[in-house]
Amino acid sequence: MEFSGQTTIKAPRERVFAFLIDPNLVGRCGPGVESIEVIDDRHFKAKAKVGVGFISARFVINMELAEADAPSHAVIKARGQAPGTAVDATGTMDLAPGDEPDTTVMKWGANVIISGMMASVGARMIEGTANKMIAQTFDCIRAKLEE
């Protein structure tokens, strides 16, 4: 599944970039994240309870900051595993200065592959749910930066 979007953040690009590559900051915006463990400056591990309503699973997610070209481009790769289900996701973020001073336009894209139980019995709700969660993640990033 491919998702993409664009959002304007009332914060300078450097600050947005710094936020995106800091696992403790960006990680808190991931859906259902309960804990973050930083392994090194490029790798971190999260535990999250992800789902819709009470249909949910606890994932252990290994994340990698795969690309970081300050202050314009970052790619985060994630592999999450829950009983019977695996999620592989790549998030790409491209930052450009906004029209207004101290604003940033973030173009984001996400490629999400869900494997196993959730793919084979949750097909009818997966796309809508994933879309919503991704949108919430980027909304959260914007909101935290604008706090």
């Binding site: 869900i114 494997s115 793919a119 084979s120």
Partner: peptide, 14 residues
């Protein structure tokens, strides 16, 4: 099947 090899009709629900 999805292109990723996931059986989307994976139960009697589908």
């Amino acid at each position: 099947y999805s292109d990723d090899g996931q059986l989307l009709s994976g139960s009697m629900l589908d």
